[in-house]
C-alpha cells in the first residue's frame, strides 16, 4: 500500500528541505558528482527507515535539478532511484505520482542515451502499480512525445495509441505530416490504415472513427483527393453521436474499404464482414493479417490452425 502522500511543495520535513538546499547549492557551483553522491546517501537513509515520502521528494527534486543543469547521466540515475523507491514503497498510479514522472521526462534531453530505458522503467512501474496492463495513458502521452522528439517514431506510435485524447491528436498530426512529407507517390491508405487497424485492435471504435475522419477530412481539404461524396447514415444512437459519415472517394477504393471495415466491426455482423472482403479482394489480401485479427476480435472467427501433419496423423490413429 502506498504510504506516500502526494505533495506539491517539496520535501515534507525541514531536514529534507535542508538536504535539498545544500544539494542545490552544490549543483549551482558545478559540483555535480559530489552533490549527486551526497544526495543518494541521504535518500538511502530515508529508504532504510521506510520514510518513503521523503525519499521520493528528494529523488525527484534532485533529479529535476540535475536535469535542468544539463547533467543527464546523474539526473537519469536519480530517476531510476526514484522508480526503485516508488516500487519498494508501493506507490500507486495516480495524478500526483504520474505528474512527477512526466515532469522529469519532459526535462530529459531527447538525445540522452538512457531515454528508452527511462521510458521503459517508468512504464513498467505504471503497469505494476496501476490498473492498465500496458501502463498508464497519461504517462504514455508524455513518453510518446519524447520518443518522437528522439526520432523513435514506431516506438512513439505504440505509446500514442495507448494514450489519451491528446495523444490521438498527436497521432493524426504525425501520420498526416508524414504523408505530406512523403510526397505525391504516397498513398493515403497506407497511413489511414494504421489509425483504423491500431485503434480497432484495442477495441477503441471512438478513436478509430475520430482519427480516421480527421485524417481524411484534411486530405479532402488539401484538394488532392479527387472527387469525394459525403454520405451520412442514421445509426439510431440514443444520445450523442447517432450518424455514420462516410467520405466516398471516387479515385481511392482503399479509403472506402477502410471506412467500411470500421463500420462493419461496429455491426459485429459476420456476413457483412465476408461480403466486404469478397468485394475488395485486393485490399483483403493486402491486409489479410490485420483482417484475421479483426475477425477474431469482432466476429468470433477463430484463426485457422497451422497445419501440423504429424499431429493430424496421430489424432487420426487415435480416432480423435
Amino acid at each position: 500500500m502506498s504510504s506516500v502522500q502526494s505533495s506539491s511543495g517539496g520535501p515534507c520535513t525541514p531536514q529534507g528541505k535542508r538536504s535539498l538546499e545544500r544539494f542545490s547549492q552544490r549543483v549551482s557551483k558545478g559540483e555535480f558528482y559530489e552533490a549527486h553522491q551526497a544526495l543518494r546517501a541521504v535518500i538511502n537513509r530515508y529508504v532504510n527507515r521506510a520514510e518513503y515520502a521523503e525519499a521520493v521528494e528528494l529523488a525527484a527534486g534532485g533529479a529535476e535539478l540535475l536535469l535542468k543543469a544539463g547533467q543527464g547521466g546523474s539526473g537519469a540515475d536519480l530517476v531510476f532511484y526514484l522508480l526503485e523507491v516508488y516500487d519498494v514503497a508501493g506507490v500507486a498510479v495516480d495524478d500526483a505520482s504520474v505528474a512527477r514522472l512526466v515532469q522529469l521526462l519532459v526535462l530529459l534531453d531527447a538525445t540522452d542515451p538512457t531515454l528508452k530505458d527511462v521510458a521503459t522503467g517508468m512504464n513498467n512501474w505504471s503497469v505494476k502499480h496501476g490498473e492498465c496492463p500496458f501502463g498508464d495513458p497519461r504517462l504514455h502521452n508524455a513518453v510518446a512525445a519524447k520518443l518522437l522528439e528522439a526520432g523513435l517514431v514506431y516506438e512513439s506510435e505504440r505509446y500514442m495509441l495507448l494514450g489519451t485524447e491528446e495523444s490521438l491528436e498527436k497521432y493524426v498530426d504525425l501520420l498526416y505530416g508524414w504523408f505530406e512529407d512523403a510526397g505525391s507517390d504516397a498513398l493515403a491508405g497506407d497511413f489511414v490504415s494504421r489509425l483504423v487497424f491500431n485503434y480497432l485492435f484495442i477495441g477503441n471504435v471512438k478513436f478509430a472513427l475520430r482519427s480516421s475522419q480527421q485524417f481524411l477530412t484534411r486530405y479532402v481539404d488539401s484538394g488532392a483527393a479527387g472527387t469525394v461524396d459525403t454520405i451520412t447514415k442514421d445509426i439510431g444512437g440514443d444520445s450523442g453521436e447517432s450518424t455514420f459519415t462516410m467520405l466516398y472517394f471516387a479515385d481511392h477504393m482503399e479509403l472506402n474499404f477502410l471506412q467500411l471495415v470500421l463500420l462493419t466491426c461496429m455491426t459485429k455482423n459476420r456476413d457483412l464482414f465476408a461480403t466486404l472482403k469478397q468485394q475488395y479482394a485486393d485490399c483483403a489480401k493486402e491486409y489479410s493479417t490485420q483482417l484475421q485479427v479483426l475477425g477474431q476480435e469482432y466476429f468470433g472467427i477463430t484463426a485457422p490452425k497451422q497445419a501440423n501433419f504429424l499431429q493430424d496423423m496421430m489424432s487420426g490413429f487415435l480416432g480423435g
Binding site: 492498465c132 500496458f134 495513458p137 495507448l162 484495442i202 477495441g203 477503441n204 471504435v205 471512438k206 478513436f207 472513427l209 445509426i235 444512437g237 450523442g240 453521436e241 447517432s242 455514420f244 463500420l263 466491426c265 461496429m266 455491426t267 459485429k268 455482423n269
Partner: peptide, 11 residues
C-alpha cells in the same frame, strides 16, 4: 450497430 460510435474498451 452492436458497438456505437462512442464505444471504447477501457484501457
Amino acid at each position: 450497430p452492436a458497438l456505437g460510435p462512442d464505444f471504447q474498451k477501457p484501457l
